[in-house]
């Protein structure tokens, strides 16, 4: 399978496609470039799967060391709290998408619109459409898909890859960030 096809067959995007995150340094570089990133975490984070463990670990480390707020789209994020992750807000996926496309919106801390959104654990098609909406109506925003199923509408996305290599990349990125790598 090609790494950068829409994971759900036929849910192809348009004429431009997310760049594939090929190595952990990419994430670090992306985070270094921006001022106001935010995590948006969906309900699949509560599943008992190796994917969720890896994501939880990554979010936990990165939100802590980089002070990145975490928004949950559902009560499922409650589980994250036990991993020391503090939840900035809970808001439906469509509602947050609607805020994100508004350049005037000031964010949850009233300090201004976000500039990078890291999506994870949102159902594939639901996330696909949100990313499509943001790509078209929020040019001020970059988006990253952290799941290991390629999302063509994100700015950056993991390709369709197996659990292990993906997990390793997430872990490596977390370590780099924890070590304060500012310039990759």
């Amino acid at each position: 399978m090609a790494g950068d096809d829409s994971w759900i067959r036929a849910e192809m995007g348009g004429t431009s496609h997310a760049s594939v995150i090929g190595k952990p340094e990419v994430i670090v570089a992306l985070l270094n470039r921006v001022k106001r990133p935010i995590f948006i975490i969906g309900h699949e984070i509560a599943a008992t799967s190796p994917d969720c463990e890896s994501l939880t670990g990554f979010i936990s480390t990165v939100s802590r060391v980089r002070h990145i707020p975490v928004l949950g789209t559902s009560p499922a994020v409650k589980g994250l709290i036990s991993h020391g992750i503090s939840i900035e807000a809970i808001m439906g996926g469509m509602e947050i998408a609607d805020r994100l496309r508004d350049p005037e919106w000031k964010g949850f801390d009233n300090l201004g619109q976000y500039d990078l959104v890291l999506f994870a654990a949102i159902p594939y098609s639901f996330c696909w459409t949100i990313l499509s909406g943001l790509r078209n109506s929020a040019p001020h925003l970059n988006t990253i898909n952290l799941n290991r199923k390629y999302q063509p509408h994100a700015t950056w996305s993991f390709g369709n890859i197996a659990v292990d290599p993906w997990k390793k990349q997430l872990q490596a990125a977390a370590v780099l960030l924890e070590n304060g790598e500012k310039h990759v």
């Binding site: 192809m12 995007g13 348009g14 004429t15 469509m94 998408a97 609607d98 496309r101 459409t129 949100i130 499509s132 909406g133 078209n136 109506s137």
Partner: peptide, 9 residues
């Protein structure tokens, strides 16, 4: 309306 294009074309 919050538009979520299902196809760009």
């Amino acid at each position: 309306p919050l538009y979520l294009p299902f196809c760009d074309l």
